[in-house]
Amino acid sequence: MTHTLRLAVLLASLCAGCAGRPQPAPPPAQERIAEAAARGAALARAGDNAAAALRFQEALRIARTIEDADAVGANAISLSIVYQRLGHHAAARSALAVVLDAQAGRFPERRVLQAELRQAILALAATDTRDAAAYAQRAWERCQRLGCELAATILNVQSNAALDGADAAAALRLAQAAESSARGRADRAETANALRNIGRARARLGDPAGAIPALEQALEIDRALADPRKILADLAELERASAAKGDAQAARGYSERALAISRAARNGAGGEETEVQLRLR
């Protein structure tokens, strides 16, 4: 019998040994945390952010009772996401403060990185470009050190910050790097986000014709992902780029599609805005 075969048999036997004894039940509290968090995530993906927030709050509460720092961090970050989507931005920042304001070393570094990235996103949504860039840079440095899986997301956030800071050339470079990173990880959502940023950056650099193929690709991915929020954003960018290119007919076509989605999604504010734009033409 070869050495390798012996070792393989050893491993198989060890596993058999595991099954021979009763398996330890997971701690009930951790099971409840996992269940509440899983339900929260499912609800958030289905668009029910209010119900999701209740689940994540419950998971966070249980995690605190057993001082499970990793679970506290994970659920605080999830809460910040659903709070932001519900429009509760102060609550979203407070949720992140649980991790960001904690004593160094209390939370795993991966959670701190995620919290910094989320803080950058919140700052950007609040048009605080400087704060966003600072947090995104901290997340980037930590990510480089840890070899994290969020590189594409961070680069996209940095690209967004550069666009908000009127540095379209930097935004284009960052978005191209994000696209490459996202494709390497087969991350379709961030690939589409990167392509959208590439289109926006090219349009800002005076190349709306060059922006359209990237935006079309982003739209194609987002349609496959069936995310109406992103499809709407892609159509809005395509409308702007087409108008800038001088193709009014194409711009109107994109605008009408966006309007149809807004109506279907009962996105009152977005629908009204698009409708006003159409009436003005």
Partner: peptide
């Protein structure tokens, strides 16, 4: 469970936390 070291082959269940999406930073 009794025979194979299959446990190593199965990834841990995906984390229940929500994925961070840079789209939330979109204007």
């Amino acid at each position: 469970k009794r025979v194979w070291p299959l446990s190593g082959s199965f990834e841990q269940p995906a984390e229940a936390a929500l994925a961070i999406d840079s789209f939330d930073a979109y204007p």
